[in-house]
């Protein structure tokens, strides 16, 4: 397996597709997470698939699958900002469910509110129809390094 730093440098330079970075994590492959890059802007995609269904009668997405998707989106997003990339550890993750997640593709974008040497605060927003109507918003803290 390629060193994480090498892979990230290649993603940044355009030599490698971001998807290779996403697919490095087994759980990301389990959910089927994809990433769309437009320049430096990244949109994460949770394609609709049977495995992420929660309520079968509606049908609606499982809130836990959406949360896991958003957490992993934030982890990838932070990795790409780090000079010496190490997989960040989630300290806490807080999510508000604003609308039902229907059985369709879900998108997420991340914004780093504050990144210190040791801790990053990230805001994540997920939507289906348009980004002005998020289905969930989340914020999370990540530990970047234990020796910083």
């Amino acid at each position: 397996m390629k060193a994480l730093k090498t892979l990230i440098d290649e993603c940044r330079s355009g030599a490698t597709d971001y998807q290779e970075l996403v697919d490095r994590v087994p759980y990301a492959r389990f959910l089927g997470i994809q990433v769309v890059a437009q320049g430096d802007e990244l949109t994460f995609v949770l394609p609709k698939n049977d495995n992420v269904i929660g309520n079968p009668t509606l049908p609606a997405l499982h809130g836990g699958a959406v949360a896991g998707f958003m957490e992993q989106a934030a982890i990838i997003f932070i990795l790409l900002q780090m000079g010496e990339p190490r997989v960040p550890k989630t300290i806490d993750f807080t999510i508000d469910y604003l609308r039902a997640g229907h059985f369709r593709d879900t998108y997420a974008e991340c914004r780093i509110t504050r990144q210190g040497r040791r801790i990053a605060n990230v805001h994540i927003s997920a939507w289906q129809k348009n980004r002005q109507e998020p289905i969930t918003i989340a914020r999370a803290h990540f530990l970047l390094s234990e020796d910083a």
Binding site: Y27, H62, A67, F69, F93
Partner: peptide
């Protein structure tokens, strides 16, 4: 992954 643990805790 924290997401898998989260999904179980949520359910």
């Amino acid at each position: 992954h924290g997401g898998a643990i989260f999904a179980m805790m949520d359910h």
